[in-house]
Design a protein around this nucleic acid. Structure first.
Ligand code: FES
Ligand code: FES
Lengths: 143, 143
DNA sequence: TCTTAAATATGACGAATATCATGTTTTTCG
DNA sequence: CGAAAAACATGATATTCGTCATATTTAAGA
């Protein structure tokens, strides 16, 4: 459903939101174990996210990644769009350019509503709200 | 959302359901244009589907592909499972093995219900019903 | 029976994605 | 100021997925 890169990126951001802060930055290599992904790859993804202001970073000794208040207001959809591109998610299921809600393809009626719901939810829930869920025990982010 | 192979396969099956029959079989190469996919690739996919009894085929002159009544009772989910494998669709969004509806990952609450709905719809609508929609003008399958 | 037309089976090639490696820049600290 | 530690930038390699090519089998028709 999501690309592997997106999954890594989402997990990375959520992990940072949960465990990092300005005073306690986390390095790329220390995300490798909890996220279960190769360190250099995570580094590359985080840099891409940093370039788009999804995460904050500082170089040098005691540097690393974290999320500031602005970053915490971002949502999952933005991560996906940065990593996978704009329309991987929004296009027709059969990649038929000619069709839309007025001219639906045969699958549209089966999944269209749910897809819109997913997109809406992904766009309208902030990272901050997601980690609040974890902190309250409504969801888990296992290592 | 689906792999490109799945899309081709779904389009192929729907096209056959709509335009082919025992008396009027369609060859792989004649699907290339309407489906907008390379002919050899479609052939490969159809053979895979035929092996799993999703479509019917006969060799030799005047041979080709079509759907019999049994094939028409199949659903889209079966196509996806044949082409992409069993669990591409059912697994956790973050590929966390440890989590499920009881121990949901942070994204589960955002999309879980919709995903179940999609799966249910894909499993419980037959090819026959989908092409009936097209015939009645409720959906379109453009060339 | 022999030729021909189709699916089938298998594998080679190419492109996209994921992974790894190297060097450069920035910042902290002695 | 100099050394080290981190992100940053770029590109090389590997793996997966999509595409193409070739040879084999089966069935129809002359
Ligand atoms: S028109 Fe194809 S999914 Fe909406
Ligand atoms: S537990 Fe991750 S999507 Fe359901």
């Amino acid at each position: 459903m999501f690309s592997r890169s997106s999954k890594y990126a989402i997990k990375g951001v959520l992990y940072l939101a949960l465990h990092a802060s300005v005073e306690n930055k986390i390095q790329a290599k220390d995300l490798s174990a909890p996220i279960n992904a190769p360190a250099p790859y995570i580094a590359k993804l985080l840099q891409e996210l940093a370039r788009h202001n999804m995460v904050s970073s500082v170089k040098g000794p005691h540097g690393g990644f974290y999320l500031d208040e602005v970053n915490l207001q971002m949502n999952i959809m933005q991560i996906i769009e940065i990593i996978d591109g704009e329309d991987k998610f929004r296009s027709c299921l059969l990649s038929l350019e000619q069709c839309n809600s007025e001219n639906p393809c045969p699958l549209h009626n089966l999944v269209g509503d749910q897809k819109l719901g997913v997109i809406h939810n992904l766009e309208n829930t902030t990272i901050k709200e997601l980690v609040a869920d974890v902190k309250q025990g409504n969801s888990i982010l296992p290592l």
